[in-house]
């Protein structure tokens, strides 16, 4: 029964990927990673330039998952209560209160997209992080729950003015940080410019088959995946070595160009981070019709689940993306399995 269930859901997941890939072209890897995050029930931080299709990507997924989709723009004057409610004067001349984006969909909220999260103040971050961790919110003398919610946030790494860098504790709550880049295939780039179907995003999103997945069954099915996909002793040892290497790369002979490795890492991956990595790896194994995790499953999610958790010396923070990428690649090259 469980095998049948796993196979059916896999088919649904692959269908969802196919649907999303139809409207967001040239982003197969991010699409696969978001699919993994959805089934691993982890929040995702998207990193990319303006206009590369982050919102379209999320809306396409939301349509495929079903449930409520809410979005808020991060600005310097955004306050925590703006996420919860807003007030206005009604036609009757009296003040009214209506639900903010977090409460608007109630328990059916499946995707909450926080655009340019690093433009919001730390107070907003703290509220969002609580909601991400506990999936609950106290407001209007009531405890609101969002059991099916996944948060997708994005940040623009290029513009730094009037931004608040997300602290490492906050970054750690996200399961993955996924880079979204412009595809470098000429045909795809040309299509994005000239194909008129990409010009009207609403119409484009409408072409995605709705409710491919049942958003309110994802939590239960996620548990089934985590229980079904096994990890051998050899893999446990391998993952442990990877973790150690993120903490003390010099012990594994890992080097990064023009970086003093003795000063680079202030903190490696956290226990929560490594457990999230293995959750994601299990989903990847399931998507590839495997019953146990292999090193390739870990590699498929290693950068995206670990890079944003590393804490570097301030002197190297400006080069974080490139250093983290090189360091993690070198860790994979240095740690053997078995």
């Amino acid at each position: 029964m469980s095998d049948r269930l796993l196979a059916d859901w896999r088919q649904h997941a692959l269908t969802l990927e196919t649907e999303v890939n139809k409207v967001v072209v040239g982003q197969h890897n991010p699409v696969r990673l978001i699919t993994i995050a959805i089934f691993a029930r982890g929040h995702v931080l998207l990193e990319g330039d303006v206009g590369v299709g982050k919102t379209t990507l999320l809306r396409a997924f939301t349509r495929g998952i079903g449930g409520g989709y809410q979005r808020i723009e991060g600005t310097i004057d955004l306050m925590p209560n703006d996420l919860v409610y807003h007030t206005y004067l009604g036609e009757d001349g009296k003040p009214h209160v209506s639900a903010g984006p977090l409460l608007m969909s109630g328990e059916n909220l499946s995707v909450f997209f926080f655009n340019e999260i690093n433009r919001a103040r730390p107070q907003v971050h703290s509220l969002l992080l609580r909601v991400m961790a506990e999936r609950t919110l106290s407001a209007f003398n009531k405890e609101h729950t969002f059991p099916h919610m996944i948060v997708f946030a994005d940040r623009n790494q290029v513009e730094k003015e009037e931004t608040f860098e997300i602290p490492s504790a906050a970054r750690d709550r996200f399961m993955m940080e996924i880079p979204i880049v412009v595809p470098n295939d000429d045909d795809i780039m040309s299509g994005l410019m000239f194909d008129t179907r990409f010009h009207n995003v609403d119409a484009l999103i409408d072409t995605v088959k709705p409710d491919v997945l049942k958003f309110d069954e994802l939590n239960a099915f996620s548990s089934v995946i985590q229980k079904s996909v096994e990890a051998s002793k050899t893999l446990e040892k391998y993952a442990l070595n990877l973790w150690k290497a993120t903490r003390k790369p010099t012990d594994f002979g890992v080097k990064v160009t023009n970086v003093d490795m003795n000063r680079l890492v202030l903190a490696g991956a956290s226990p929560r981070g490594m457990s999230m990595m293995l959750r994601a790896a299990r989903v990847n194994a399931w998507l590839n019709e495997r019953t146990a995790i292999t090193p390739e499953d870990i590699h498929a999610v290693f950068h995206e689940t670990v890079a944003h958790r590393l804490v570097f010396s301030p002197v190297y923070e400006m080069r974080r993306t490139e250093i983290a990428r090189e360091m993690l690649s070198n860790i994979i090259n240095a740690v053997a399995a078995p």
């Binding site: 051998s232 050899t234 019953t291 146990a292 995790i293 292999t294 399995a337 078995p338």
Partner: peptide, 11 residues
């Protein structure tokens, strides 16, 4: 073979 030996006995 390695996958079967070390990671996934059912493979």
């Amino acid at each position: 073979l390695s996958r079967q030996v070390f990671f996934e006995p059912n493979a």
